[in-house]
Structure formats: C-alpha cells, structure tokens
C-alpha cells in the first residue's frame, strides 16, 4: 500500500515547524509498512493534485501571501476544489486553513479574496492569539483530544457549510469567542494548531491517515504502534493546562 502526499508551498508555508507534520505522516505510514510518496509543490510549479491522496498546506508569513494568491488563482484553486469535493484528505494549518476560506479581511478593512473551498471567512484583529492550547475533536473527526500551539491574529468564523473540527478546552481556537476550533468538510481538515500538530497527537494523526487509506483501499483499521513517548508528551501538556486552570 502507498499514499501520495502532496506538500503544497513548502518553500513559503513552512513556519512554526509544520514540516514536522509531514515527517510524522510519513513515519507512521512507514512503521506500518505503507509507503509514503511526498511530492513538494513549490510556487510556480504544476502538479496533478488529482493524484494526491493527502494534501498538506502549512502556515506562513504574511510577507509571501500575495505571491501565493497569484499562484493559486492560476488554476490550482480549481484543482483544490475538485480534490476536496472528491473526498481527498486535506490537512491545512493556520494560514493554509484560512486560505481555503472565502476571504480575509484585514484589521484596516481591506478585503482579500481566498479560494472558497470552505464556507468560512477570517477577520484580522489587533491582538495576536498566541500560546499552547488544546481542543477535543468532534466524534466525526475521531473524538481525540489535541494539544498544540496557536499563533494567529485572524479570527475565523464558520459558515453553515462546514462543521467545527473540535471544541476548545483551553486557548482561543477559531476566534476566541464561540469555542470552536478548526473546520471539517468532507475529508478537509483545517486547524490553527501548529506545535507541530501531529507528533504529539498520534490518535488524530492516525484518524487522518485512516480517512485517506479508507478512500483509497477501504481500510477500516490501522495496526497499533508503540506511542509511549508521544502520549507522554501529549499528557504532559494537558496536565499543564489543568494545572494552570486550578491556579486561576
């Protein structure tokens, strides 16, 4: 068995260790004897997104965003939409997550159109939402608890066409107000979680892999792995949150 993973814009969307998610996807496939073929898709290059089983888009600096949008509007936006509708698994983080929404409105009121794959939009705010945080995934997204690190000034509001990925346990999540974190639509997963997301959240990583393997091979179950260090690092951060809460 093998999964084709497409890493979109690794040349610019590579902030906050998101590359760790790719490393983790590959390792956890390889440890189970499944091949992982990673295709890097930098700005300006073409690829057949239809061949991908899992598409990853990370977060980046505002500085490069304009370059990116131009590239997206040269046809990749349509390919992404088709893949999403077709049930391809997407993991999109922070800037990459916002980009799949309808638009971004800066704090000064300037509006920038995004590609509209997900029914959501983002509004810039003055304050950055920074820090370790945690959330519980909805049952349809595996139900596991996730620990991560968020760092964003955009507040994302979900429309009726998407469901939240999870509910915030501590931290801000989508907008710091409605308690939602991330978004889910078909097999598209969007989240603010850097950290990176997957290494310390093996249950979520496996859920994600399963959606792609299920679509391709009808797989319903993954062989268990020894996740002692991952779970210990995960639990340690969770314990920190409850400790912080107890002490106000």
């Amino acid at each position: 068995m093998e999964l084709n993973i497409c890493h979109m814009y690794p040349d610019v969307l590579n902030l906050y260790g998101d590359r760790g998610d790719i490393i983790t996807l590959c390792r956890r496939l390889n440890w189970r004897g499944i091949d992982a073929n990673v295709t890097r898709l930098p700005i300006g290059e073409k690829a057949d997104l239809g061949k991908a089983d899992l598409i990853f888009i990370g977060g980046g600096q505002d500085f490069e965003q304009q370059v990116l949008l131009e590239d997206l509007h040269r046809g990749k936006d349509r390919e992404i939409r088709d893949a999403a509708e077709d049930g391809v698994t997407f993991l999109t983080i922070c800037g990459g997550y916002q980009m799949l929404g309808s638009y971004y409105e800066t704090f000064e009121g300037q509006r920038c159109d995004f590609i509209g794959v997900l029914d959501l939009y983002t509004v810039g705010s003055k304050d950055r939402m920074i820090g370790n945080y945690s959330f519980t995934c909805e049952e349809e997204s595996g139900g596991s608890t996730v620990v991560g690190f968020e760092n964003h000034s955009g507040r994302t509001m979900l429309g009726s066409g998407v469901r939240p990925l999870g509910r915030v346990l501590s931290g801000y999540g989508n907008n710091g107000k409605d308690g939602t974190e991330g978004a889910r639509y078909k097999n598209v997963f969007g989240t603010y979680s850097h950290g990176p997301l997957l290494p310390k959240n093996p249950a979520f990583c496996d859920f994600l892999l399963l959606t792609a393997l299920q679509r391709k091979y009808g797989t319903t179950e993954l062989a268990p792995l020894d996740d002692a260090p991952e779970i210990s690092a995960h639990d340690e951060m969770l314990a920190r949150f409850s400790h912080q809460k107890n002490h106000g």
Partner: peptide, 13 residues
C-alpha cells in the same frame, strides 16, 4: 520562546 515548534524546523534528521 514559549513555542517549541522550531525543533521541527531544525534538521535533527
């Protein structure tokens, strides 16, 4: 730095 994600950008491979 309170964000330790940088260890994944470093090439510990």
């Amino acid at each position: 730095g309170t964000d330790v994600s940088w260890i994944w950008d470093a090439d510990f491979e």
